[in-house]
Amino acid sequence: MWLWIHKFGSPKYFYSVSGKLLPWVAGATVLLIVMGLYLGLVTSPADYQQRETVRIMYIHVPSAWNSMFIYLLMAVAAAIGLIWNIKLADIVAAVSAPIGASFTFITLVTGSLWGKPMWGTWWEWDARLTSELILLFLYLGYIALQSAFEDRRLAARASAVLAIVGAVNVPIIYYSVQWWNTLHQPQSLGVGMSTIHLSMLWPLLIMALGFKLLYVVILLMRTRAEVLERERNNAWVQELAQALAGRDFFRSGNEYR
């Protein structure tokens, strides 16, 4: 187990394995999202009350799930990087933050668009939307701290502490916002997810899986790019560049060395 982690944690091994894995995951992602969108936008019925606007759900809910999942994953990766000093974990945490922030932003925008026909306003201080907004702030703070350090190792370690503190705080913030919301608005404006019909549940689940894989694809691509950049002075990256040097666009880059 340990050996495996260290083996996979080595940037070179990761680079070659992820390169083989990437096309498959990307293919599955495209397949799932196309299928989910078709089922969700074309074949699934419109809602009795919300009519066609319910279709926003197929983007909104998977993004919301992703936004929270990615924060947790980022914190775990950051903790692994901090405790066991695994470089790859640092990179995964660092590149996850902008992706998670993007999903959070998509959640907020689609939630706001959904709010207009549903609640009659672009923005409602609904507990879930408010927590998403705070989650976006947490992501932005993490990204800001990460970019404030010149030294990458220091950046990784400092932001790891922040990610862990943030992850501990996320449930506290979530429940206090929910509580605050029930105090100020006794009537529930939330959309009940438990009573969802199967014809809507399937596209939703497919989209959720598709979005998860989409995250994996972007994560792999960004991690690979980051690995190459950080390891650019190592022999295996140089060899890789040499092998590709026959191609024209690498030739100009080689003059710098």
């Binding site: 947490l138 703070g141 701290l145 922040l162 943030g166 913030i173």
Partner: peptide
């Protein structure tokens, strides 16, 4: 940067205190 990091974490205290 400090305010960016710290203010979101202050939210529960604000909610409970003001509440």
């Amino acid at each position: 940067l400090l305010s960016l990091l710290v203010l979101p974490l202050y939210i529960p205290v604000l909610i409970m205190g003001a509440g």
